[in-house]
């Protein structure tokens, strides 16, 4: 069974990106590079505490990194963190192809 390749990192990535606002924030950072929480708040259309909370979830999934500069925190996307998710879906491809082979064998054996 293929999901044995899955690790907790994948799980965090899926959960982090299950929320449309977090996807939007991540996408914005991936497209336009590093930004402050303040700038992201304007973009996301939700309160600054809400944006900070979303960023914490993204950070835990290693989808974003941050650095402090003076009183501002700057965030940037880490698209490489998506790799486990992409890999996981690839494993599902191998999984289903294998099961299709088994289905074919079974169909041969079954009564008409």
């Amino acid at each position: 069974m293929t999901p044995d390749k899955t690790n907790l990192g994948t799980n965090y990535v899926f959960r982090a990106l299950a929320d449309p606002t977090r996807r939007a924030i991540f996408e914005e950072l991936a497209r336009h590079g590093e930004q402050t929480v303040h700038a992201l708040t304007g973009y996301a259309g939700v309160s600054q505490p809400a944006v900070s909370k979303h960023l914490t979830v993204l950070k835990r999934a290693k989808l974003v990194r941050h650095r402090r500069e003076g009183r501002e925190t700057h965030y940037r996307a880490q698209p490489d963190a998506l790799t486990p998710m992409v890999d996981w879906l690839r494993h599902y491809g191998a999984f289903w192809r294998d099961r299709f082979d088994r289905l074919e064998v079974l169909l041969e054996r079954m009564d008409p």
């Binding site: 449309p20 991936a30 998506l82």
Partner: peptide, 20 residues
């Protein structure tokens, strides 16, 4: 919804390069 997966992945394909 504005930020569906489709748009999300379409947009990120460029960022991810070939790995998507």
């Amino acid at each position: 919804a504005k930020y569906g997966w489709q748009r999300f992945f379409d947009g990120l394909e460029r960022v991810l390069g070939g790995s998507a």
